[in-house]
Amino acid sequence: MLEILIYILLGIGIFFNVLAGVGLLRFPDVYTRLHAGTKCTTFGSIFICGSVIILGLKMWYQGSTDGSVLAIHTVGALVAILLTNPTGAHAIARAAHKSGVEPVGAVVDSLRKKSTKKTVKKKTEVKE
């Protein structure tokens, strides 16, 4: 019974990780790629680590000390992923915006108005 649950969790995790790869290839600019590359890998990692945790708990229940160590350390790895992934995405997005990459097809961009007012004015004048 638990085996089937583990396989289902592994399958969901793999699906979302593959989705992250496809999203990285399909989306048009940095920000949308970050959407795919951050959310999908985090969600997939939760499921794969969850399946390993269930495996460890099952081994622990059957009386092996290795199982508990496996489960606790996997929880540690999961917490590390959950803490670091969104922060890294935030840093990359900020760096991309400061180094001048513009969102493709953006309807509105309030940040650009704030950070580089003068250059924006010049650009719009040239365009008009």
Binding site: L19, A106, V107
Partner: peptide, 19 residues
């Protein structure tokens, strides 16, 4: 994730940066 999956498959996006 379901939302991102939908957008990866169909490719419909309408992005912007808001405050």
């Amino acid at each position: 994730n379901i939302d991102v999956a939908y957008r990866v498959i169909t490719g419909k996006i309408n992005p912007g940066i808001v405050k």
